[in-house]
């Protein structure tokens, strides 16, 4: 089973991104936020999002979204098991998105080592204070050369580009 994992911090757009390309009504586990996340959004994923897409050659790609908060890191391990690659979404509107990028790259380091990753920078329409080159420089300093894209999580085309880029990375 070809399974791609969507990860990243709270409010990066993981649930939205999966919904944008989903062929079915996605399985979601949104519940009310009762903490400071409520300032960002009303609901948050606590277990997983699930959906799938079918490629032109008929291959079905299963999409699993993780909860953003690190208290749910047990779900990251459960969902990443047997995954073929990672789509990492980072919210460009966050005060310190580079720190967040580093945190999630470290948290999924073993998985990325075994598979591959592409990075999608979301909410670029809201914020341009962190230029995409900053992210590329940050990765270069870490000696991690990964594809980085500006994306809109609501755009089917943008998220499909991410998924196809990941599949291209994995085929090399």
């Amino acid at each position: 089973m070809d399974k791609i994992i969507f990860a990243g911090p709270v409010g990066a757009g993981k649930t939205t991104a999966i919904g944008s390309i989903s062929e079915i009504p996605p399985v979601g586990t949104d519940v009310a936020c009762t903490d400071e996340s409520a300032q960002i959004k009303e609901k948050t994923t606590v277990a997983m999002d699930y959906s799938y897409i079918t490629l032109d050659d008929g291959t079905r790609i299963h999409l699993y979204g993780t909860p953003g908060q690190d208290r749910f890191d047990f779900m990251w391990q459960i969902l990443a098991k047997d995954g073929i690659g990672l789509v990492l979404l980072i919210n460009r509107d966050h005060p310190d998105p580079l720190h967040q990028l580093g945190f999630y790259l470290n948290a999924f380091a073993d998985f990325i080592q075994d598979t591959g990753v592409v990075i999608g920078l979301t909410k670029s329409d809201i914020s341009d204070k962190h230029d995409i080159s900053k992210f590329q420089d940050f990765l270069y300093e870490r000696q991690q050369i990964f594809p980085v894209f500006d994306v809109d999580a609501r755009s089917e085309d943008d998220i499909k580009v991410l998924v196809h880029a990941l599949l291209a990375v994995l085929n090399h």
């Binding site: 519940v31 009762t34 948050t44 606590v46 277990a47 908060q69 779900m75």
Partner: peptide, 25 residues
């Protein structure tokens, strides 16, 4: 519902934060 512990009577070796998060999931 979003996985924060509010009160607990767990055994000493049980991490309340993990059990709160796992329960909500």
């Amino acid at each position: 519902v979003d996985g924060h512990s509010k009160a607990q009577r767990l055994e000493a070796d049980m991490d309340e934060h993990r059990f709160a998060a796992m329960s909500s999931a």
